[in-house]
Design a protein around this nucleic acid. Structure first.
Lengths: 156, 156
DNA sequence: GTCAGTGCAAACAATTTGCATTTGT
DNA sequence: ACAAATGCAAATTGTTTGCACTGAC
């Protein structure tokens, strides 16, 4: 995962202006490894900027996504964002349904998949969903403990 | 894939009324094997029913989905529907980016994936995207069989 | 000082809901 | 006949856009 500073630097390198909001956004994705919805981001940022508007959040998420700093993924429940994986080799993810953290899977099923010669493969997606150790099998799990919860251990 | 008649029967068995629209809808999904958006369905149905409204399309898609006759899948470009696979064993799909038709993959990568003991797997998704023989790499590939064009949109 | 970034309102797109009317059974 | 299905309008939710103002460089 990119650090807060790396994210800021990436923006700077591309001639983007480093506003206070963007610093906060960089910090959010630099320190939080799970997937966040635009709404999550809005709520987190909203704590600091009272007059915050949704469209600015969307604009910045888009900018960071285009810049390759964030990855945008579509889930059943909607679109979510997270800092780009720093692992440079191809990999897939296990995603915790509770806290949204992801864990890399180095194994890629594609190499073992027999594609008929006449099907020209362009892309593939392999995702495993479940509960990580911390979220375990607790029943009435709360819906993602907000953005504030500090997370240790970053990987993929 | 379920046939038109099987779809109608399923509706009937569940006490749903077989309206003209629903017959047409059954025919559409009974004869077309690719994924369709609500809009695709609306446009197809609209040819026959001038006063057709979008909400009825949505309602019926939902009904058929709840009934298990259709499967609803979320793609990058949005939600799509297709007749439920009749293959009763677990499988995955190769999906043509052009015509949206799907081809089953019997191989399931899950059995080969090492989930750490502390990650409790609940679900997984494995999808391969590309171009089928018919759609090949032709540029302006032919559109879907009359139901409306599928958008291309790819990256990575 | 300039031009990119922001807030605001308003536009859009996708999907859902309330209600009066129509229609399958 | 009666409840379910439909059409219409309007509400919701998620996301984008036009424009005047503010602030980073």
């Amino acid at each position: 995962m990119l650090t807060t500073d790396q994210i800021i630097e990436a923006m700077s390198e591309h001639g983007l202006r480093i506003t206070d909001q963007r610093k906060t956004l960089a910090k959010l994705f630099g320190e939080h490894s799970g997937y966040l919805t635009a709404k999550d981001v809005y709520e987190y940022m909203g704590q600091k900027y009272s007059g915050l508007s949704f469209d600015t959040v969307y604009r910045n998420l888009r900018v960071l996504n285009d810049l390759g700093v964030l990855e945008q993924v579509v889930f059943e429940e909607g679109v979510k964002f997270r800092g780009r994986c720093s692992e440079d080799h191809h990999h897939h993810h296990m995603i915790c349904l509770q806290c949204q953290k992801t864990y890399p899977i180095t194994f890629c099923p594609m190499q073992l998949t027999d594609a008929p010669d006449d099907f020209q493969v362009v892309q593939h997606k392999f995702e495993v969903f479940g509960y990580c150790r911390e979220c375990g099998q607790e029943e009435g799990g709360k819906p993602m403990s907000g953005v504030g919860a500090a997370r240790r251990d970053e990987r993929g």
